[in-house]
Structures are given as structure tokens and as C-alpha cells.
Nucleic acid binder design. Sequence first.
DNA 1: CATTCCCCTGACAACGTTGTCCAGGGCCTA
DNA 2: TAGGCCCTGGACAACGTTGTCAGGGGAATG
Lengths: 347, 347
Amino acid sequence: MADNTRRPEPRYGNRPTMKDVAARAGVGLKTVSRVVNGEPGVTPDTERRVQESIDALGFRRNDSARVLRKGRTASIGLVLEDLADPFYGPLNRAVEEVARAHGALLINGSSAEDPDREQELVLALCARRVDGLIVIPAGHDHRYLEPEIKAGVATVFVDRPAGRIDADAVLSDSFGGARSGVAHLIAHGHRRIGFIGDQPRIHTASERLRGYRTAMADAGLAIHDDWVSLGTTAPKRVQDAVVAMLAGPEPVTAIFTGNNRVTVTVVRVLAAHDRPVALVGFDDIELADLLDPGVTVIAQDAATLGRTAAERLFHRLDGAADAPSQVVLPTRLIARGSGEIPPPAEG
Amino acid sequence: MADNTRRPEPRYGNRPTMKDVAARAGVGLKTVSRVVNGEPGVTPDTERRVQESIDALGFRRNDSARVLRKGRTASIGLVLEDLADPFYGPLNRAVEEVARAHGALLINGSSAEDPDREQELVLALCARRVDGLIVIPAGHDHRYLEPEIKAGVATVFVDRPAGRIDADAVLSDSFGGARSGVAHLIAHGHRRIGFIGDQPRIHTASERLRGYRTAMADAGLAIHDDWVSLGTTAPKRVQDAVVAMLAGPEPVTAIFTGNNRVTVTVVRVLAAHDRPVALVGFDDIELADLLDPGVTVIAQDAATLGRTAAERLFHRLDGAADAPSQVVLPTRLIARGSGEIPPPAEG
DNA sequence: CATTCCCCTGACAACGTTGTCCAGGGCCTA
DNA sequence: TAGGCCCTGGACAACGTTGTCAGGGGAATG
């Protein structure tokens, strides 16, 4: 207790305030406010004096105080799953572009696919009083957001739907994309097709699995237990899955991968494999066209996903009060070669 | 007073405040504050009552007001060049990890390589009173930051140094990396080597060019005018540059590329070219090992760049007041094949 | 010259939180 | 049993800004 040399005011830099500017310019506080905000009703002469004072003192309006007074922060929060995942780069950028067009700043962070961290981050953003949120959810229960949404925090979910609350969402057609990708392999003669996906608790992962199962069922094909592998995207796990599928009693002749990270690992493993194995992956990957064979993918448009979500968000912020809706964006199959490899001749 | 429906403030959601919580719990304002902040001096019984009240009302502390009172925002700003560039993903993530470890939020935006936009963004962040800034500069004159830095906004530049002010910076060894990459090509027998880089006003671009020139000079090799091409990273521009270099009177037998985006385009162009051309690129690219030939690169560690910068920033925020310093991180040559292609036999 | 009106300007309160300071009550000690 | 101390709780001001409103001065008008 002896050492608590507490300062009464722990402010770090004594920045000039409007009061200081006003004093130096010999005008009232409100006049400075008017000049700073470009409001009318100030004579050019007065304005010049104030501006000179602002420049001399290096004044910069304190937006915290402004926010407190006005209620709106002109900032939105973006919670993604992993900032380093190349899939989210264009999405992030698209959101930022829209935010910028609306004069808002973007605060972001990643949940690392951890529901607790997601909640922590989202609530921290709410405490900052962001005007709105764009969330790529990691968890499955978003009831913790109810008071926030009721209090006016516009919220849009992207890539995966919200859990246990009714909210706007912008999604890619995971089910349809996976189904068409697997159908593509079947159309090229494959009967034994493997599926390697992300953890099943992730919505997109289970939707893609469902697409795979549906395509197989549509073609009257049974699925061997060994052909489906779900789990983390860690290279080791994926590699083991590929090896197991190719070595089993009924080895697969083609593989469908559930996202970009899985695809990249599978491409690596297959490159070292002696027999050619057909491959279709969900998500496009950079340079996929230059590999040999080129990687056939189900591409989703991350930028459009982000832009659509951001536009919906600002639409709500502008007062739209219609019921929450889900937008599902189509995917696109890009055939580059790996998906068109025929199965080896029987015998 | 007929008009008692006057709405003095345009507040969007009437969120409960500590005052509301206090009234409902039948305690004083400060007691609520103590509970919310986990301060000691509240009996368990009172605390329970307050907590119940908080939950019932859906109260969430307003950090804007808190910031205004306390002076610190527990947030830092990150200004990068392009959120969608895969190079910045790991950097962004590393910064976020460090920020999170220090309990700070990350606000970010991209300058799109536009100095005006950089300044606009930086000043907006300062108005938000971020505690510190990490900037990948687009411009060359950062004197506009002087009042901010003097007022206590810690600032660290990454990837490129600050212009006309003395500030912390964390850089990769662009010059040394390029020099060693070009030397690598020379060691494999090349004499006519091209350089395709980003716009020369970008610091890293000119440093890499300097590394190229130095390596060539070290080996006593002259540089033909047609061998150097600087400009935007637009695929069209880069493609034209490659074609010109390979078609000139003295066609190059090897190319050094100045960054990841240029490298990707050049790989595409060379894949369609009939003769093999050696290639070394600055920045690693995903799947570079799987191409044929694998792409030899000068890799810089984006995550370490970001982590180092963020740690330096928080070090300053913790009170370090030593003189600004520059940290230069080494690069690493990863030989994968494209850089080891020998020049075609003369004749 | 008096009056009206408008334009410019500034005083003041309020936004929601936290630091300071004081009051009251219970408990320990002498 | 009395005195003092510690522990809990609350009143109040301040952070820097903006909305409201009122006052003063000059120009336009009768």
C-alpha cells in the first residue's frame, strides 16, 4: 500500500482540446466546434482565426467524446475466423471498401474458430458501441447477442448462419456446390469417392458433407465408412486421411475436399503419390491453374460475400427494419484438369 | 410546454446505463461501477443484486465513456497497403495476436497504396484516440504525424520506413535479399537477368532494384535498359514486361521479380513460354513448391515482421522512451528449382 | 430615427463512466 | 463499555464534445 503513487489523472498525453483552441483564438467553445465540423454560421475571418489556432496547437477532435455525445460511432466490427486465411482477405477488403464508402471504420479480430473467443470479441466490440457487426460465427448459440441486437446493433452473419437467433446471413451454397462437385467426379466415371472436410460442428463443413452424400445417393452409390474423414485442417490429420483412403481395401479413385486448406494439403500428398487420383476442392486457391494437373474447384466469391453482407448491414443502419433474411450466393465449378482424371481401368 | 415530445438527442437504441442498473438494484452508481470492473469493496450480497440487475437489463458498459474518462482506449490501429494481399494476412494476424495478449483491440484499414488515403486513415485513427499505430506507409512524408507522436501516440512503421520523421521501423532486408537472389542466378550461370518490380516510389521496390543492380555490378555485369521494368503490379503490365524482355535483341535468360504479385504473373507467363527461363521471386507464395519447376524465392517472414512491430509498440506503450530504432529482419533464399535452371547453351 | 429581422456567437447542460472523498455502521481492542 | 478503525456505499465532479437556446450587433425597412 505504501507504493501507490497514483496519479489523479492517468492521462498519457495532454492533448489540446476545443477549449484550448477557443482560448487561443479568443472565441467561444461552440464556435470551434462549428469550424471543426464544417457547420455554417461562422464568418470567414473567425474561421481563419480558429483554423490557425487548430494548426498551431495540433488539435485533433476526440472522437470518444463525440461518440459519447452523439450515440453513433461510425465504426463497424468484423469478426472472422482467421485473419491469415487467404479466403478471408478479399472478404475483409470488400467489407472495408463498403465501410469506407459509408464513412465508417472497421474494427476486426479473429475468433480462431473458438466460440468463447468469438463471444468475447463480439461483446468487446459491442462495448465499443460499434454501430454494426459482421460475424463469421465459430459458435452455435448466439443468444448472447439478443440484448445487443434489441438495443440497435445491426448484425449480419457471413459464411455460416447464426445459431438459435433469427438474424441476417449471407452464405455460399455449400450444399449445392459440394453436390455438383461430387457429381462432376461421378460424371467422369468415379464410383469410389472420398470426402475430407473440416470439423463437422462447422456449418459449412456439414453442409458440404451433406452435398457429397446427396450426390452419391443420387447416383445410387454406397459410401464406404473409410471414405469420409472430418476433423481439423492440420496437415498431419489430412495427410493421414488421404493415405488411409488410398490404402484401404476399397481405395478411392477420387477425392472431394471440403475447403482451401484441406485442398492444399491433399494436392501436396497426391503429388507424391504414384497413381493419379482425381480431385475437386471447395474454394478456389491461388495458382491452382498452374499446377499439373490444374486443380478443379468449386469457387465461391469471397469478395461478393463480404460486399453483400456489408451492404445489408448499412442498409439496416439506414433504418431498414424488414425481417432478417438469408441470402445464398451460388458457387461456380472451375474445371482445370484434376477433376477430369478418369478412374483407373478396372482389373 | 406543449411540445414535451422533444427529442434532444438522436440516440438510436436506449441502452441501459449504470444509472439504470443502480436504480433497479437499489444501490449507488459507484457500486455498480465497482461490480462491473471487479473492484474490491462490495459485499457478496450487494454484488449479487447488482449482477442480477445487469443481466436483467442487458447492460453493457459503454467504453466510449470509459475511454473519455480514462484517457486510454486499449486499441491500436493497423494501416496496411492492401487487406487482400496474402502477404499481409499473417502479418495482420501476428499483430492481432500480440494486441489480444495485451488486451487491446485492433482497428484496421488499407491505404490502397494511396498517400492521401493513408493520411486520412491514420488521422481518423488518431481521432479515435488509438493508443498506438502500426503503419505500412504508402506516402513519403509523415510529418503530419508529429503532433500525434508528441501527444503520445506510439507509432511503429513496418515493411517500409517512415518519411521525414524519426520513428521506429521494422523492415525486411529488401536490398540484401534481392542481392542474394540475383547472385544466386548469376552463380547458376546467368549473365542476362531481368528485373520486374513494383513502382519505384515504394521503398521496398527501389531497395530491391538496388540489390539487383549491386549484385550485377558485383559480378561485373552490365545491365541492358530493356532488362529493368518498374510499374504497377497489374497482370497486363507485368506480362508485357516479360514478353519484351524475352523478345528483345538481347533476351534475358533469367528474371528476378520484386514481389509476390509480380511473381505470380510471371510464373503464369513463363508457363506458356517455350524456352525455360530461370526465375527467383521476392516473397514466398503458396504452393510454390508444387509448381514445375518449384519457384525459388527470397522469403520474408511476415508473421515475425508483424509480431516484432507489435511488441515494439506495446513496449513503447509500457513506457519505453528510448530513441526510435530500425530493426531489419533477414530474408531467406528457398531454392526450389526455378532459380537453378541453367541458361541455354550459347550458339 | 426607430423597429424588425437575421446572422453570428457563446453560455450551458448532457452524454456515461470513473476517481475522489466523505459518511455511517459494524467489529475489534483496551 | 467506549473508542477507534476498517469496510462498504454513495454523492459529486470531471473527461471533451455537441445540441439548445438566448443575446448582441448590423442591415434592411417603415
